[in-house]
Lab assay of single mutants.
Amino acid sequence: MDSLVVLVLCLSCLLLLSLWRQSSGRGKLPPGPTPLPVIGNILQIGIKDISKSLTNLSKVYGPVFTLYFGLKPIVVLHGYEAVKEALIDLGEEFSGRGIFPLAERANRGFGIVFSNGKKWKEIRRFSLMTLRNFGMGKRSIEDRVQEEARCLVEELRKTKASPCDPTFILGCAPCNVICSIIFHKRFDYKDQQFLNLMEKLNENIKILSSPWIQICNNFSPIIDYFPGTHNKLLKNVAFMKSYILEKVKEHQESMDMNNPQDFIDCFLMKMEKEKHNQPSEFTIESLENTAVDLFGAGTETTSTTLRYALLLLLKHPEVTAKVQEEIERVIGRNRSPCMQDRSHMPYTDAVVHEVQRYIDLLPTSLPHAVTCDIKFRNYLIPKGTTILISLTSVLHDNKEFPNPEMFDPHHFLDEGGNFKKSKYFMPFSAGKRICVGEALAGMELFLFLTSILQNFNLKSLVDPKNLDTTPVVNGFASVPPFYQLCFIPV
């Protein structure tokens, strides 16, 4: 009986604490739906499609509103004006990374994606500088992407125009580009180590996009005490870190300090320079996690976009025909596509942009946080508050993009057929937390897609009208449904 009384008292205290925290903070924060004790607004949000729920709530509470995930307040920004004001106009104040408990377990605050403060700034600055020195957006990395595009075309030829699921092959190409940047090595598509790495990356994007992960991140005790797919994700990350550590040891034994070959060499050189400046942010643990982040951000996002792009091109054969006509006119058949071609191919450029806009790969991006107490639109948001960005509300804005739910390359073309930029184009987020590999991803999408369409016609196994382009999961990332196609050599 005594234990029951204690339990009831504990629960009562928890409920009172929950109510007090919510009521004391709500006077400062933007308005929002009334949260339930302990669980907050979790029942009012469709976990399978958070973005749709945010759109519905914005119609009631406006472009800036507050939700509670458990006891934790989260300020939501919906629509271009609110997102721009926060991420661009007040970029420094909104540059923090929001709480992501599962990532905390995986990387302990290291790396480039989930770190904060001085650690994040130094690692991000170093990573950007190193990638630029190796030619991100310049010639040397373009050579690597072109080489991988040629290998991709050869792998597709091996399908002999038979029906195939493109998931694996389209994942190999961007993964190999990242391998060449980090390890100075590309792998054969049949290499077992490479296959294991690909498998872990593919599993992780599916797990991260599941409703279960949303629950884990908002009720963090689940991570330590409950079984579930989150444990598989943590094991996959541990596998990748151990693999990278092996490569780091190989580099330490063979590195030429006067001739760095890749990202690992550059990081080890930085560690050597910083060894007298303790404590340094440049450690082996930081290198492991930064490399894992580059793999995660640079492989599955690009391969998922490529997979979605081919599905949309199957669905819209008239678009595919126009792209192939432009390829034939500008590039021809006797040389590989290059980035200089893009400025002469406005329709193809528009298609690449429209694919990214339409699929809305990361509907709410990753959570941000404010780095200080900030007054925002007459609300006071306390330091450390998590900020949720609705990228969907920007990419699918119906004023900027008429009929935003329709796939239409003319969203990025003017009346004369010239490519038209849009400030609403934010597939990689915006501001200080914009994806480090934005330029690389854009290069890969253009070169891989043009190389495929230069060499193959795409054949659907069903009537294009019957192809479903609805994402199968739409949590962290929008993942396309399973499909097969035939690559018919031109």
Rank of each mutant, 00 (worst) to 15 (best):
P30A: 02
H410S: 14
F94C: 12
T299V: 09
L152Y: 00
A86R: 02
K28V: 12
M269F: 10
E325Y: 10
V479A: 12
D373T: 05
L29K: 04
I223H: 09
V75Y: 02
E155K: 02
I215A: 07
Q252I: 08
K72L: 03
D224H: 12
V330S: 09
N474H: 11
P227S: 10
Q214G: 09
G79H: 05
A161H: 04
V319R: 01
P317Q: 11
Q324N: 07
V330L: 06
I141R: 00
L9R: 10
R97F: 01
N204D: 02
D224R: 15
P317G: 08
R307F: 02
E288R: 06
S95D: 09
Y483L: 02
P367V: 13
F482G: 13
E250Q: 09
L14V: 14
F126P: 02
A439M: 13
V351G: 01
S51N: 15
N107R: 04
G137F: 09
P346T: 07
L36A: 09
H78I: 09
L152E: 01
E354P: 02
L453A: 03
D224I: 05
E300Q: 12
E81S: 11
T348A: 08
M136K: 09
N466C: 12
Q44W: 08
V60K: 15
D256H: 10
P481H: 05
L233Y: 05
Q193T: 15
E300W: 15
T302V: 10
V490Y: 09
L380R: 11
Q193G: 12
L170G: 01
N277A: 10
S115V: 14
T392V: 06
I178D: 00
G475D: 06
Y379A: 05
T159G: 04
K383Y: 03
I74R: 03
L128S: 12
C435T: 00
D143E: 15
M339R: 04
D188W: 01
C486T: 06
P317E: 09
F100P: 15
N378H: 07
T301C: 01
L195T: 08
K247L: 05
I359L: 06
S393R: 04
N107M: 11
P382S: 05
V76D: 01
M136T: 11
R125A: 07
G437E: 03
I381F: 06
L391V: 09
I359N: 06
N398M: 11
A430R: 11
V490R: 15
N231T: 12
M406Q: 14
N277P: 07
K375Q: 09
Y308S: 04
L388Y: 08
G437D: 00
P402I: 12
V352S: 05
V490C: 11
T386A: 06
A350P: 01
F376C: 09
L208G: 15
L294C: 03
M426H: 09
I123T: 15
G437I: 02
Q261V: 09
I42R: 07
R144K: 12
D463H: 09
Q340K: 11
Q44S: 12
A350L: 01
L67M: 09
N133Q: 12
R144S: 08
V75M: 04
L4N: 12
I207Y: 10
F425Y: 11
W212M: 09
G298I: 00
M136Q: 11
N398C: 12
P73L: 03
I327Y: 01
L9P: 13
E300T: 12
K232V: 07
V75R: 00
E288C: 15
E148R: 00
H276Y: 12
I215P: 04
L287D: 00
S365C: 15
D262F: 01
S95P: 05
D373F: 01
A86I: 06
I215Y: 12
R335T: 07
I141V: 09
D349L: 15
V83A: 11
K28E: 10
Y358V: 08
H316Q: 07
I434C: 11
Y61S: 02
I182A: 02
R335V: 06
I182T: 01
S127P: 01
C216H: 09
D414R: 04
N418E: 11
N403S: 09
K465L: 08
G25L: 11
Q356D: 01
N176L: 01
G117P: 09
A321V: 12
A149Q: 01
E81D: 13
E92S: 12
F401M: 05
N289D: 05
A238G: 09
Q324V: 06
T320K: 11
P63L: 02
V38I: 13
Q44K: 11
K119N: 14
K160L: 06
Q484F: 02
C486L: 07
S23Y: 14
L36W: 14
S303W: 04
G32K: 02
R108I: 07
P427E: 02
L208E: 15
W120L: 06
P409D: 02
P346S: 07
C266M: 13
M426G: 05
N398G: 13
F69Y: 12
S422N: 11
P427W: 02
K421H: 10
L485G: 01
A149L: 01
T470Y: 05
F126V: 10
D165T: 01
F376Y: 14
F94G: 06
D293V: 05
I141L: 14
K158E: 09
A103K: 09
P471L: 03
T283Y: 05
V6M: 15
R186D: 02
R132Y: 04
K59F: 10
T301G: 07
E326D: 07
A350H: 00
F425L: 07
L395M: 12
V76L: 03
R105I: 11
S162C: 15
G384H: 06
P481L: 02
S220V: 13
T301F: 00
G298Q: 00
P337N: 01
T450M: 05
G137C: 11
I327A: 04
N236Y: 03
P63M: 05
I488S: 09
L208I: 12
L366P: 09
E104M: 14
H410A: 12
S58E: 10
K119E: 15
I244M: 10
C216Q: 12
P317R: 07
K459T: 07
D373H: 04
K158D: 06
F226C: 10
E199N: 13
T66M: 04
K158C: 06
P31G: 08
S18R: 14
K399H: 12
R377G: 11
L197H: 02
R108L: 08
G32M: 00
L17Y: 11
G79K: 04
T299A: 08
V351S: 03
V60S: 12
F401Y: 10
C266Q: 10
P363M: 04
F401T: 04
Q252N: 07
L440H: 01
V6S: 12
A369D: 12
Q324T: 07
Y483D: 01
F482K: 15
